[in-house]
Every structure is written in C-alpha cells, then in structure tokens.
C-alpha cells in the first residue's frame, strides 16, 4: 500500500503559482515618504474644500439676504454641483496611484464632455438605453419597454414587464447603462441592488468621481440615502417605485480609502434605518455594463 498522499489538480496549481525568489522587497523608506506626501496633500485638499464650502455658504447667505449663515440655502441636490472654478486654485488633486514615484502605467481619466459643463448630447432615450444593453449582450427590457423614471432627463429608468435598467449621460455623449435586472423589488439586505456606477470626470477643478445609481424601491423603504467621502449626503429621488441618484464628488479621486466607502442607508417612512452599509469599493461601485467593468 502506498503512503503517498494523492496530489490533486488544485495542488498542482498551487505549486505552479508559488512565488519565487526573484522579487525584491519594496523600499520601506520610499513607501513611508510616499505616505507622508499623501497625507500632506490630502490635508491640503481637505482644507481647500473646507475653505470653498465656507465661502460658498457665506456667499449663499449674502445673496439670499438672510443676514445669517444659518439661513443660507443649501443646494437642492449637492450631487449635481460641479465644483466651482475657484476650487482649482486651492484644491490640488490627491496624488493618484499613477503619480506615485514608481508609477509607470497612468490610469486614464474618462473624458466626459466639455470640462465641468456636462454633456451637450441629447438626453438618453429608451431606444439608446436598450441599445447599450443589446451591445453588452445582457438580458434586458424588450422593445415594449417604457421610460419609468427620470432625473433631470439625463438619468432615466426603462422597464417592461420583465426587466428594468437605467441609463445616464450627464457627462458623456452616449449613455452609460446600469446592468439590467429582473423586475422585482430587492430586499433591504440586498446590498448589490444599491451598487453605484462610478467614473472619473474632468471638471474645471480637476478630476472628480461621478457616481450615479438607480433601482427598484424595496418594500417598506421611503428613502434611499447615499453618503460620500466628501461629506455629501444625497437622498435618491423616488418615482414610480424606482429611485435614482447622482453625485459629483467635491474631492479628487484617490481621496477615498478603505473605510471611507460610499455609504447607503435605507430608511422607512418613519425614519427607521432598515439597512446601513458601506459599498465594497470596486465590486459595488461599478454597476455599469457599458464600459469600465
């Protein structure tokens, strides 16, 4: 009888993938120096954003004639606010991964229409939205689909009796499509149902993260609330049993970190929190099918 342990195919794969001695450790001093630069620039960025926020609130109060900072009107939807040009002078982009000392493959920014102005293309239509799904080969609403919701015309929800999907072209000439899903209300604990589509756009102030999302409203939920690393809290707009959300970050990409992810809260009509989760960066911040994922 052989006492040789049976080697499984997976064991072979493990052996084949074993590291060898050819890789040298990274230079700790270089890592620490990079981290200190990162902290310094993040501090500057935060200070810049805070300064702009204070200026904005003060200006808002002055224009409203309220005479009190507390009366300053808040943006109806901070998610649609493209950072003011003044930000460019104070808010230096946090070093992106490509700017680290040993960077060699710069990630490309998604170019998205004229800088800081959004797309000048026609708003997405049911047909253009369905076209994106067809191009991606996804099961999607059929030709009988109708528009079921809209956020300023640039973000629309399309559905037939079986599937729904959403499209947005706020900053792109062609729509970005959210992965189609079956027409059924998700549970409040289905975190993937609240995944966002994330892209980098170029504004007058530099690169910014642009998030949008849409979905079916779970039973018992009145408010779908998103919170972002820049401090913005955005309540999704609800229409016909669907919700839609859009947000342009006021801080540069790369300012996010583990623990600073997009937060989603589902609230009942009485304000009770039915779910409170931070989206998994990467897997739940890339809900689009059109590109990038």
């Amino acid at each position: 009888m052989s006492d040789e342990r049976r080697v499984t195919p997976e064991d072979d794969l493990r052996v084949a993938l074993l590291p060898d001695d050819s890789i040298a450790p990274l230079d700790p001093a270089r890592v620490i120096a990079g981290a200190r630069r990162r902290r310094k620039v993040r501090g500057l960025a935060a200070a810049g954003v805070a300064a702009v926020a204070v200026i904005g609130v003060a200006a808002g109060g002055f224009l409203a004639g309220g005479g009190s900072l507390g009366n300053a009107p808040q943006p109806a939807d901070p998610g649609l606010t493209v950072p003011a040009p003044t930000l460019a002078t104070q808010d230096r982009p946090t070093p992106r991964p490509s700017e680290t000392p040993n960077a060699s493959t710069p990630p490309e920014t998604e170019t998205a229409g004229p800088e800081g102005t959004g797309s000048t293309a026609a708003p997405p239509t049911v047909a253009s939205c369905l076209q994106e799904a067809a191009a991606a080969g996804e099961p999607a609403p059929g030709s009988a689909a109708k528009q079921r919701g809209s956020l300023d015309g640039r973000l629309i929800v399309v559905a037939d009796g079986n599937y729904w999907m959403a499209c947005d072209n706020t900053f792109r000439p062609t729509p970005t499509a959210r992965k189609p899903a079956k027409l059924q209300r998700p549970s409040t604990q289905d975190n993937n149902a609240f995944a966002v589509a994330g892209n980098t756009i170029t504004t007058a102030a530099g690169e910014r993260d642009f998030f949008w999302a849409a979905g079916m409203l779970p039973t018992g939920v009145a408010t779908v609330r998103y919170s972002f690393v820049d401090g913005a809290v955005v309540d999704a707009e609800v229409s016909n049993g669907f919700w839609m959300m859009r947000h342009v970050s006021t801080v540069p990409p790369g300012a996010h970190d583990l623990g600073d992810r997009v937060r989603v809260q589902l609230l009942s009509p009485s304000g009770a929190v039915l779910n409170d989760v931070r989206l998994n960066w990467g897997t739940q911040t890339c809900a689009q099918i059109s590109h990038g994922c």
Binding site: P107, E110, C286, G292, C293
Partner: peptide, 8 residues
Amino acid sequence: LSWVRRRP
C-alpha cells in the same frame, strides 16, 4: 478593481 474601473 478601482484602477481597472478608472481605465475604461
């Protein structure tokens, strides 16, 4: 995952 997303 994030970098791949940023290089559409």
